[in-house]
């Protein structure tokens, strides 16, 4: 399969189309404009539905409708737009509808700016909207990985009937890398959806709802959801380790910072500093166990994020005092260079 030079935003769009995406609803926002434009150009040509909605709120509710009708559906946005979608995401989560949501994070809070940031970690991994729910959150660190994880997002979302989020940032959206695109899925490879609203012909009616006025009934729905989450936690934790075998200091970083940290590991080792990297690929479920195991062997677990320390909380929950857990983060869309991070590393070694 030949490699194609693509922007992250375009690779995500193409991978989604090749994953059997039928309906895409959106509202324009930077820095994911190329994704919207690619969909507008390509999806209708390939038998899908592209619709620019009147708002982020409408777009996610259109996803709710299309997913309820049994097709693969997706929306994408960036931080402020994802905030607006939270209502719909909460409904989708409780109504047990599969779908994919892409967040190309930008600087925040508020209008912030359009530079790369990772300030939506809490929102993505701890629910985001109201109620007890999770999304499956996948964090690509390269353009080819973004394409790969889009396919995985659709598959996991279908398997568990839990919405999946691709959590990336403006850098991954804007940069180009060679990508090997996934093969298009055949319609018969997409799981059946016997629960979908397709007309009650020859079967009892299907109802898609997040609602039960009776506490006992709602409790039952909630427990079923929680049971699914435990199953996902058992089966779907994904992460990458780089040079962790003899590491004395472990960096934990995801997405853009995860890949920059790979260069930090190399630079540090050139100086004789034994640094390793654990890069969570699933942010929910978070790789608590792998972090914990490594924390037994290293002295320092340094969390590096483009936030004020959001994933850091999960790292500390995993480490539970087994190692020191310093933090280095940048805010406002500033992306630290490998050398800047190396300076942080040096503070904790020797």
């Amino acid at each position: 399969m030949s490699r194609v030079l693509m922007r992250g935003n375009e690779a995500i769009a193409e991978a989604a189309i090749r994953s059997g995406l039928k309906c895409y609803f959106c509202y324009p926002i930077t820095p994911q404009g190329e994704l919207v434009e690619y969909m507008a150009r390509e999806l209708p040509k390939r038998g899908g539905v592209f619709l620019q909605a009147e708002s982020e709120v409408a777009a996610i509710n259109m996803v709710y409708g299309a997913a309820a009708a049994g097709v693969r559906a997706m929306t994408s946005s960036s931080s402020p737009g994802i905030s607006l979608k939270q209502e719909g995401i909460s409904y989708i989560a409780m109504a047990r509808l599969p779908c994919v949501i892409v967040n190309m994070m930008r600087g925040g809070p508020g209008l912030g700016n359009i530079a790369p940031a990772q300030g939506d970690y809490f929102q993505a991994t701890k629910g985001g909207g109201h109620g007890d729910y999770h999304l499956i959150v996948l964090a690509p660190s390269t353009v080819p990985e973004a394409a790969e994880l889009v396919r995985l997002a659709f598959e996991l979302s279908d398997r568990y009937r839990v919405p999946a989020m691709i959590l990336a940032d403006g850098m991954i959206g804007q940069m180009m890398e060679p990508v090997e695109l996934p093969e298009p899925v055949e319609p018969e490879d997409i799981p059946e959806r016997p629960w979908a609203v397709t007309g009650a012909k020859g079967r009892p009616k299907n109802v898609i709802t997040s609602f039960d006025l009776e506490p006992e009934g709602l409790k039952e729905m909630s427990l079923a959801l929680q049971e699914t989450y435990r199953e996902i936690e058992r089966n779907e934790v994904r992460w990458e380790e780089v040079e962790t075998e003899d590491a004395e200091l472990l960096i934990v970083a995801y997405g853009t910072m995860g890949r920059i940290a790979k260069t930090v590991v190399r630079l540090a080792r050139q100086e004789g500093i034994k640094v390793g990297l654990l890069r969570p690929i699933t942010l929910w479920p978070f790789p608590y166990e792998p972090v914990r195991e490594l924390a037994e062997r290293v002295r320092t677990v340094l969390t590096v994020e483009l936030s004020a320390g959001q994933m850091w909380e999960d790292v500390r929950l995993a480490v539970e005092g087994r190692a020191e857990t310093p933090f280095y983060g940048e805010l406002g869309g500033v992306v630290p260079s490998p050398k800047r991070i190396l300076e942080e590393v040096r503070k904790y070694v020797g």
């Binding site: 490699r3 030079l5 359009i114 850098m171 804007q174 940069m175 890398e177 060679p178």
Partner: peptide, 21 residues
């Protein structure tokens, strides 16, 4: 972008990162 494409075509790894906005 042309430099990146040339590298890719010759089997190398490449990244192209724009300033944007």
């Amino acid at each position: 972008k042309i430099l990146a494409r040339a590298g890719m075509n010759r089997g190398l790894e490449v990244t192209w990162l724009p300033s944007y906005g």
